[in-house]
């Protein structure tokens, strides 16, 4: 999350809403460790990563929903036969990603 603060401030300054997605659990081997994070704005900006490319687009769509609803969501991604060529993790692990809206003080 640390490395995303600059982007989040910028997006907020431009009048956009923001959600953060963070890897909160990893089972098996996954491309990014617990704490890896990605931020998304209501304008469609994206910074950071949660998996090194495998599930970012799916998380991006979920984050847009979270920005609209204002309600956080816990997502789980793992490799399965039908997901292998869709949104799956190449490394074969399972990750849990928590997506939450960011409320920022008006300063």
């Amino acid at each position: 999350m640390k490395e995303l603060l600059h982007d989040i401030d910028q997006w907020h300054a431009n009048g956009n809403k923001v959600a953060i997605a963070t890897v909160v659990k990893v089972e098996g081997s996954a491309p990014r460790p617990v704490g890896a994070a990605m931020a998304v704005s209501s304008a469609g900006d994206l910074a950071g990563s949660v998996s090194g490319g495998c599930v970012e687009t799916a998380v991006f769509d979920e984050a847009q929903e979270v920005i609209k609803s204002g309600r956080p969501k816990l997502l789980r991604y793992g490799i399965t036969d039908e997901m292998a060529w869709d949104v799956g993790l190449a490394c074969g692990g399972t990750i849990e990603v928590f997506v939450e809206p960011v409320a920022i003080d008006i300063e």
Partner: peptide, 14 residues
């Protein structure tokens, strides 16, 4: 994320 927690966290990191 509550604004209060977010700004306290950001300040601590900075």
């Amino acid at each position: 994320m509550s604004a209060q927690v977010f700004s306290a966290t950001r300040k601590a990191i900075a």
